[in-house]
């Protein structure tokens, strides 16, 4: 009897703990919830009931106003174009580097890898002004190509580091068998190593895409005009602008959050796999 009561009180404790944890998570997610419910309110409604009340129906005026105000279609296109280009190019560059450093017995391999890791860790400020000058010199300043060029190299520094360590345990027998069959190095890369490392390459692709999407500093210095801005940059430049009311500001927050939530839902598995595989951040 006592044991039974004990078990059921244990059961109660478990559920209390779960509810407490759920409340904590709800508190963590509150910023997302607040921005969402206030982006779909009218200004009058906000003035009357404040930020906490649930919206009476969904009013898209603020979102639409903000969308046209910053030409959000254009901004979304800029971000998508830059992020896809960087992700594709940086995966290719990482693969080429890692093919040589992971499989080959290149002299000074360990040092080259440290160098690549360092290049990724380096603060962008320490490259910023020369890059800014260089972009102007090449007449790619204020075009997506400036950002694509720089971010491709910075992202691939990390990709090279991670992919080299993955490829260094690539089964030698497969390589040797392929070489016996008369494969040259290019065949080896294209027909054997690349297809077999597709899981890691897709992890890298997803991370490069999201990192580039989220990037702020380089677009800030390389993309000054409204027409070339990326999503985070356009939102930051319009923050607290004259004539932006309360609900429009939460609409801008929501438009910044939504694409990321969509990526998160699409790529969730790949993300978790990547973070745990490489300590990727």
């Amino acid at each position: 009897m006592a044991a039974k009561r004990n078990r059921s009180s244990n059961q109660v404790v478990k559920w209390i703990v779960l509810v407490a944890l759920a409340l904590f998570l709800l508190l963590m997610l509150m910023p997302f919830i607040m921005v969402t419910i206030n982006a779909v309110k009218t200004e009058a409604e906000f003035a009357r009931l404040g930020p906490l009340s649930l919206p009476h129906g969904i009013n898209l005026t603020s979102l639409k106003d903000f969308w046209t105000r910053v030409n959000f279609s254009r901004t979304l296109f800029n971000s998508t174009f830059i992020s896809i280009c960087v992700a594709v190019l940086a995966v290719i560059l990482s693969l080429l580097n890692a093919f040589a450093l992971g499989l080959g017995k290149v002299k000074g391999r360990a040092w080259l890898l440290v160098f690549f890791l360092m290049a990724n860790f380096l603060p962008q400020e320490a490259l910023a002004y020369p890059l800014y000058y260089f972009a102007k010199f090449l007449h790619i300043y204020d075009t997506p190509y400036a950002v694509i060029l720089v971010l491709t190299v910075i992202q691939s520094a990390f990709g090279t580091y991670l992919l080299s360590s993955v490829l260094s345990s690539f089964p030698r027998e497969i390589l040797e068998a392929a070489m016996m069959d008369g494969c040259n190095k290019l065949n080896l890369l294209w027909n054997i190593v690349a297809p077999l490392s597709l899981p890691t390459l897709s992890v890298l692709f997803v991370f490069f895409f999201i990192w580039t999407w989220n990037e702020f500093f380089l677009p800030l210095i390389l993309l000054p005009s409204n027409a070339s801005q990326t999503v985070p940059l356009a939102l930051a430049m319009n923050q607290g602008q004259y004539g932006m009311n309360i609900t429009a500001q939460s609409a801008s927050g929501l438009l910044g959050i939504l694409p990321c939530i969509i990526f998160f839902l699409i790529f969730q598995r790949t993300l978790t796999k990547g973070i745990t595989a490489g300590g990727i951040k």
Binding site: L21, L25, M28, L29, P31, F32, V35, I210, W213, N214, E215, F216, V231, P232, L233, L235, A236, Q239, G240, Q249, S250, S252, G253, G256, I257, C260, I261, F263, F264, Q268, L271, K281
Partner: peptide, 22 residues
């Protein structure tokens, strides 16, 4: 729960600033 706690990590730093300034 893990996914929920991770969610803020996927946001751009600038968007985090905009949301919290609000």
């Amino acid at each position: 729960f893990r996914a929920g706690f991770y969610l803020p990590q996927i946001l751009p730093s600038a968007v985090i600033g905009i949301v919290w300034a609000w």
